[in-house]
Amino acid sequence: MTSIRSIDRFEYRAPGSLDETLDILKTSGTDAKVLAGGTDLILQMKQGLIRPSLVVDVKKVPELNRLEWDEVGGLHVGAVVPLNKLATFPAILERYNILAQACSVIGSAQVRNRGTMAGNICNAAPSADSAPALLCLGAGAVVASSNGARSIDLNDFFVAPGETAIGDGELMVEIEVPTPPPHSAGCYIRHTTREEMDIAVVGVASFLTLSPQDKTLKEARIALGAVAPTPVRAHGAEAFLTGKSVTPDIIEEVAEKAAAEANPISDLRGSAEYRRELVRVLVRRTLRESCSELGLIE
């Protein structure tokens, strides 16, 4: 049950550079909060779940507004680039289809005009729609503090619901996504009751890389949303699939394995049993979709 009330007084800062931001974060206590689009943060403040004394609005920080791609360096998504901009960025549309799919289902056009991918993963909801796609793509998060910058592999990023590997005084600067290898394809599908403005009951991303010589899978990645305390990879299913040449039976078996690996709970949006079933269905669908893109099946 929620209870909306007025937000307590807080200090608001909107620094104009990365250095200034890191300075503020260095001296502020743990109840400072970074504000990007605010589509998660403000709601949590209204519900009294968090009561920050300082809100640092980072939208004006130039270093966080970067959106670039090149073959070698891959994709760099600054922490405050709105989701709608990602879903129309040519390099993403051409090379990161799976990411475009994930970003374009979040909330609604209005939410995507404000919300960011960094905010989506920093908020660390198990259902965060961009997370499975980013996990599949081998993304990393660049975080910085006044002591310097470091990169966190996304596989090590999610700790618990609402908890990440970002430390006190640290800021996420950007998300790095390597350029997908040749002969690869991926797909993100989520299930919601309502078409838009809904949270995934289950979300599944699959990403496959083919050995063109023998038509076997050089690498397979499968990531699941909303079926564990954090977005997770289905390592067992991936291992089973890697090195195989795909048949409908194999897809079925992988879907089964992924469903068994999932660790869902029952809540308002669906029972654990239903969620497990959805993992099976969506893994199957994402694999079929990716395989058909690779020309492996009709």
């Binding site: 049950m1 929620t2 309502r194 078409e195 838009e196 403005m197």
Partner: peptide, 18 residues
């Protein structure tokens, strides 16, 4: 007896897309 879905996210009404 206590209402659990007391937000417009979980008290789900159709949108124009539904």
């Amino acid at each position: 007896g206590k209402v659990q879905n007391d937000t417009l996210l979980d008290y789900r009404m159709p949108t124009a897309t539904d």
